[in-house]
Write a protein that binds this DNA or RNA. Structure first.
Length: 487
DNA sequence: CTAGGGTTAG
């Protein structure tokens, strides 16, 4: 191959009458060989032909520099650059862009940027679209998105406008850093400037959203591109198929995690979650929430909180339900101050705080024996536009009974009725237990009667207390038929 | 006649 080229060149230079002609023909041929990526062939041809017979100009030297660049021999590239000055030749945009690219081929982004900056300063050889685009690619290569965007902004100021390649490079880089929102914003900016996206731009974005498990967004983008007559290619499909395969596995894993958590098998569930994240899959908010709940239920609060920050880090925002799980876990594990801190966080994030959240907090305060604070929170509900539900009242009644305030508990029972919130079986059981605990058996019996009349019955733990009373002979035998009914 | 061009997989 090389020999053949040499013969060609020898023939070409023999037939070319003038020196100028010879160098042009020679350059054409070397250019072709370089295009075939036979870089070392170009170098040896150049060296063997001898400059005396061929001559040197900007074009041929740039080709030679480019070949050294592709051979990762920047030292030689730079020494050829030195020849320019010795020969009184001026390197042009092509030469400098080639050098920038050469440094990038060796991952030497800082030096590439250095050349670019010198071009900007010197002023006699302005970077063009190719130069800018090459530098942007360099910054993206190392994940320096902000530098890449800065270059893009510099282009906005100047005469040379960015094209779809410049934008696509940055969009892809942002997606790789899971900054899909930023990528989508840049995508919109690009279109608003009338720069049309292509299949590569869309594939990068689809890949980005797929990595975050946003399958819906992926299909939206897919439909959008087709509606613009941009058709998915083999790369696009590969991303989609891969995501589909992962999704079905993810589905299975999420179901398993749910099952493990229900059986309090948290270690197994955790291992499965780790396997998911190792495969680059992002568990959805619900899966995370179930696991957070599981951790709380077995008292692993630290793990629960770690999971909640992890989910945020991978773009799965905890919703009100997730927070309520965490809040409940903290309250049930007597970590009231951390619970209040979390509550503050929720308020700061302007989450839609509902009655369920307040129920958890009020219950937490009651369990911690802070009945006054619980009452304050309860009284403040209406000012927040929230109405207490059966559960809220039942929690308050339970709290008051724990604090020994049984008569106030009874007032709550009446009050809820008046406010159109009918007590449930659970409410009666709670207050009955409260009265028994506070040794007010006779009132308890009256309440049992009301409960039975209303068609509710005693639950297991209330029954246990009643049986206990019976065994101690503390119940009026006249009430025995009633107790039988409440069973 | 000379420079750059991105996406997927493990």
């Amino acid at each position: 191959m090389l020999k053949m080229m040499m013969r060609n060149i020898a023939a070409a230079s023999f037939y070319c009458s003038s020196r100028r002609w010879r160098v042009v023909r020679f350059t054409q041929i070397l250019g072709q060989v370089a295009k075939l990526k036979h870089y070392s062939a170009v170098i040896s041809l150049y060296n063997q032909m001898g400059v005396s017979r061929i001559g040197r100009d900007v074009y041929i030297l740039t080709i030679v520099i480019n070949c050294y660049c592709h051979l990762n021999q920047m030292g030689f590239s730079l020494s050829v650059l030195g020849k320019f000055f010795k020969l009184g030749l001026e390197p042009n945009v092509f030469t400098f862009t080639t050098l920038i690219n050469g440094f990038l081929l060796e991952n030497r982004v800082a030096e590439a940027a250095g050349i670019f900056n010198k071009m900007m300063k010197a002023g006699n050889c302005k970077p063009n679209l190719v130069t800018f685009s090459t530098l942007i690619r360099g910054f993206c290569m190392t994940g320096n998105n902000s530098a890449a965007i800065q270059v893009l902004r510099k282009m906005d100021e100047g005469a040379c406008k960015p094209d779809v390649v410049c934008y696509s490079n940055i969009i892809d880089s942002l997606c790789k850093d899971t900054l899909v929102d930023d990528a989508l914003n840049l995508f919109l900016e690009m279109m608003s400037k009338g720069i049309a996206p292509n299949v590569i731009t869309y594939t990068s974005l689809i890949h980005g959203v797929c990595n975050l498990g946003e399958w819906k967004e992926a299909t939206r983008l897919l439909n959008e591109m087709v509606s613009k007559n941009i058709f998915p290619d083999v790369f696009t499909f590969s991303v989609l198929v891969d995501t589909l395969c992962k999704e079905s596995w993810k589905q299975k894993a999420s179901t398993l995690i749910n099952g493990y958590c229900k059986r309090k098998n948290i270690d197994e569930a955790m291992m499965l979650l780790r396997e998911m994240t190792c495969k680059g899959l992002v568990p959805d908010t619900v899966t995370y929430s179930i696991l957070v709940d599981g951790c709380c239920k077995v008292g692993k609060l630290g793990d629960a909180q770690k999971l909640s920050s992890e989910m945020q880090a991978c773009g799965q925002l905890p919703n009100v339900q997730t927070y309520s799980i965490l809040l409940d876990g903290l309250c049930k594990n007597r970590q009231l101050s951390r619970a209040m801190q979390l509550f503050g966080e929720m308020e700061a994030k302007k989450l839609d705080i509902n009655i369920v959240i307040y129920n958890i907090l009020i219950e937490g305060l009651c369990i911690a024996g802070k009945i006054e604070s619980a009452r304050d929170l309860f009284c403040g509900l209406s000012s927040k536009g929230l109405r207490p539900n059966v559960r809220t009242y039942t929690i308050m009644i339970n709290g008051l009974c724990i604090a020994g305030l049984t008569s106030e508990a009874e007032k709550f029972l009446i009050q809820m009725e008046e406010k159109g919130c009918s007590p449930e079986g659970c409410t009666y059981n709670t207050i009955i237990r409260g009265f028994i605990h506070n040794k007010q058996t006779s009132t308890a019996m009256v309440l049992i009667q009301t409960m039975v009349e209303r068609g509710f019955s005693a639950d297991a733990s209330t029954m246990e207390l009643i049986v206990n009373l019976l065994s101690k002979d503390e119940v009026d035998p006249a009430l025995l038929p009633l107790i039988k009914k409440s069973l």
